[in-house]
Simulated scan of single mutants.
Amino acid sequence: MRIVQASLLIVCLAWQGIALASKEQPSLSVATTEGKTFDLSKQRGKWVVVNFWATWCGPCLKEMPDLDGFDQARDDVVVVGLAFEEIEAAELKSFVKKRGVRYPIALVDVYEPPADFDVPRGLPTTYLIDPDGKVAEKFLGPITSEDLARVIATKSVPTKTET
């Protein structure tokens, strides 16, 4: 029943349209499960995938291996997962380790989520940040590496080649 309700919520929200993040060039600095700090501003020059997810969210878990592979396969992309749920940090760290996810994961407060991002209306919610630090796209619901690659290809500025 929960899966059906979550699926209906995602579909309904998708029909309502999706607004971009609160700020055109959001900031984000979070402590990861590995005890490091992920700072969005230090990722300039790369595409950043900011993925809000939860351990109980089936579509979130389904996309994690694909996001991990995308992160590992591309030098121009960084993925960060933001666990948007009430869970103990040790439990989250154990969960992530069992899933084999290699990209950084941070636990965010559901009552005070990162200020420069909209509160997720459904999970997963994913932001694609361009190399200049601006929101290029926001996705509500599951995505694939192909979806991300397509957006990156359409939004990338071709570089000039010397002749």
Rank of each mutant, 00 (worst) to 15 (best):
F95C: 04
V96N: 06
K97Y: 06
K97E: 10
K97H: 10
K98G: 08
K98A: 12
K98D: 13
K98F: 06
K98M: 07
R99N: 07
R99T: 05
R99P: 05
V101L: 12
R102D: 07
R102F: 02
Y103H: 09
Y103T: 02
Y103S: 01
Y103D: 00
P104V: 06
P104G: 07
P104R: 12
I105M: 11
A106H: 13
A106E: 08
A106W: 13
L107V: 00
L107Y: 05
V108S: 03
V108A: 04
V108L: 06
V108C: 04
D109W: 13
D109C: 06
V110Q: 12
Y111C: 01
Y111M: 05
Y111T: 12
E112H: 15
E112I: 04
E112S: 14
E112Q: 14
E112T: 13
P113K: 03
P113T: 01
P114N: 06
A115T: 15
A115D: 15
A115F: 14
D116E: 15
D116L: 15
D116M: 14
F117K: 11
F117Q: 09
D118H: 14
V119G: 08
V119H: 09
P120S: 05
R121N: 10
G122M: 01
G122K: 01
G122F: 03
L123S: 08
P124N: 09
P124Y: 08
T125M: 09
T125H: 06
T125R: 11
T125P: 04
T125W: 08
T126H: 06
T126P: 04
Y127S: 04
Y127F: 08
Y127W: 11
L128A: 02
L128V: 04
I129L: 08
I129Q: 10
I129E: 06
I129S: 10
I129N: 10
I129D: 07
I129H: 10
D130L: 02
D130M: 07
P131Y: 00
D132I: 11
D132M: 13
D132P: 05
G133I: 08
G133Q: 11
G133E: 06
K134P: 08
V135E: 02
V135D: 01
V135A: 04
A136G: 06
E137N: 09
E137Y: 10
K138V: 14
F139A: 03
F139E: 02
L140E: 04
L140Q: 01
G141H: 10
P142D: 09
S145I: 00
S145K: 00
S145A: 01
E146D: 14
E146K: 15
E146S: 14
D147K: 11
D147Y: 08
D147T: 12
D147I: 03
A149K: 15
R150F: 11
R150Q: 13
R150T: 14
V151F: 11
V151L: 11
I152N: 12
I152E: 10
I152A: 10
A153D: 02
A153E: 03
A153S: 02
T154Q: 15
T154S: 14
T154E: 15
